[in-house]
Design a protein around this nucleic acid. Structure first.
Ligand SMILES: [Mn+2]
Ligand SMILES: [Mn+2]
Ligand SMILES: [Zn+2]
Ligand SMILES: [Zn+2]
Lengths: 157, 157
DNA sequence: ACAGATACTGCAACTCAGTCTCAATTATCG
DNA sequence: CGATAATTGAGACTGAGTTGCAGTATCTGT
C-alpha cells in the first residue's frame, strides 16, 4: 500500500482531515533521509516553498508516528528526532556524544532476548528504546583511548 | 569503600567541597529505595527536616551520577528519575504506560550482544539506555489482550 | 586558630521543547 | 451547496532544567 494512501486511510478511520499542510509534511518527511528534528523539518519545508507552523508540525508528527510511517527517537534532554520508516524495518541507535552522528544497528538476537525477558516478567511490550551512547570511530580516535568523561554508566560500587 | 567516603574522594579529586547540603542529599538518596524524581527528593529531604533548594539538587545529582553512586534514568518527555546504585549492579527498565510502575531487568546475554554490535560498528560505548514500554501484569489484564493504543512501535509498511 | 582563595547556596530570572487557546479557515459529507 | 466538525497560525503558556548574582561556607595553607 502506498504511503500516502496509508496515511489517508489512517486519517479517515480517525475522522481526521487530509489538509494541504499534512500532505506536504508527509511528502517531505518521506523524502528525507536520515534523522531530523522538528526545526530541521520546518526548514526543509521552507526550502521546498511551504510554510507550516511549528504548532502544526507538533500536531501532525504524532499522527505520522501512530500510523507507522515515521519513527520517533526520544533523545536525552528532549530534542526528539524522527525518521521515515516506510520500507524499512525496526532498528536501534548509537549516538556519538562528540559529533552527534547517529548510527543504526539491528540485532535479531537482542530483540529475541528482549521478548523473552518480557515474557519472564509478564510484561506486555508495546515498544522499546535501545540507545547506545559513546564515540564513533572518528571521534574516539581524536579523544584518545582513556578519556574519562561524561556518562559514567559502567561504575561499580 | 564506604559510599560517603567514595563521594568525598570524588569531590576532593575535583577540588569540590563537601557541604552540608551535599551530605544530606547523599544520605537521603542512599536511603531511598526505588526510583525517584527531583521533586520527590526535595520532598524526602523536607520530611527529614532539611531544606535544599531545587537548584542545589540539580547541581548535586550530576556529581552523584558521575561518581557512580547514583544512576539517572532518562524517561521520555524529560522527567528524569534517579536510583541509588550502591551495592547494586547494572540493570535496565520496563515502564508501565498505565500505572507508571518501573520493573527492573538484567540480561548478561543482551549486554554481551550489545558489546559485540559496538565492536562491529567500531563504536566506543560509554553508556546505554534500554527501556521497554508496555503494560505490567496487572494493567495488561485490565485492558484486554487486544488494546490498540499508543506507542505503535511494531508497525511495518 | 586564622585568613585568603575559591566553591557553594538560594533566589529569581531565564531557556527551550513542547502544548494549548482562540478566532478565522477549510475539509468532508449528505 | 451548506451544516458540521476538524484544522490552522499566532502567540501565550507550561514545566523541567539552567544560570547570574550577591552573600555564605568550606578548604588550604600557615
Ligand atoms: Mn534510524
Ligand atoms: Mn532500577
Ligand atoms: Zn562522532
Ligand atoms: Zn501497570
Amino acid at each position: 500500500m502506498h504511503a500516502a494512501a496509508r496515511f489517508a486511510d489512517y486519517l479517515s478511520r480517525k475522522r481526521l482531515k487530509m489538509t494541504r499542510e499534512r500532505r506536504v509534511i508527509l511528502e517531505q518527511v518521506l523524502a528525507a533521509r536520515g534523522h531530523f528534528g522538528v526545526d530541521d523539518l520546518q526548514e526543509i519545508l521552507r526550502k521546498a516553498g511551504h510554510t507550516v507552523s511549528r504548532a502544526s508540525l507538533y500536531r501532525t508528527l504524532p499522527h505520522l508516528v501512530e500510523s507507522g510511517l515515521v519513527h520517533k527517537l526520544e533523545m536525552a534532554k528532549g530534542q526528539a528526532r524522527y525518521e521515515p520508516m516506510v520500507g524499512r524495518h525496526h532498528h536501534d541507535h548509537m549516538v556519538c556524544l562528540e559529533c552527534g552522528k547517529i548510527i543504526e544497528f539491528e540485532s535479531r538476537e537482542i530483540e529475541r532476548l528482549q521478548d523473552r525477558v518480557c515474557r519472564r516478567k509478564r510484561f506486555s511490550m508495546t515498544g522499546h528504546t535501545h540507545q547506545i551512547r559513546g564515540y564513533c570511530d572518528g571521534c574516539a580516535g581524536r579523544r584518545g583511548p582513556r578519556a574519562g568523561g561524561p556518562d559514567p554508566q559502567a561504575h561499580r560500587v
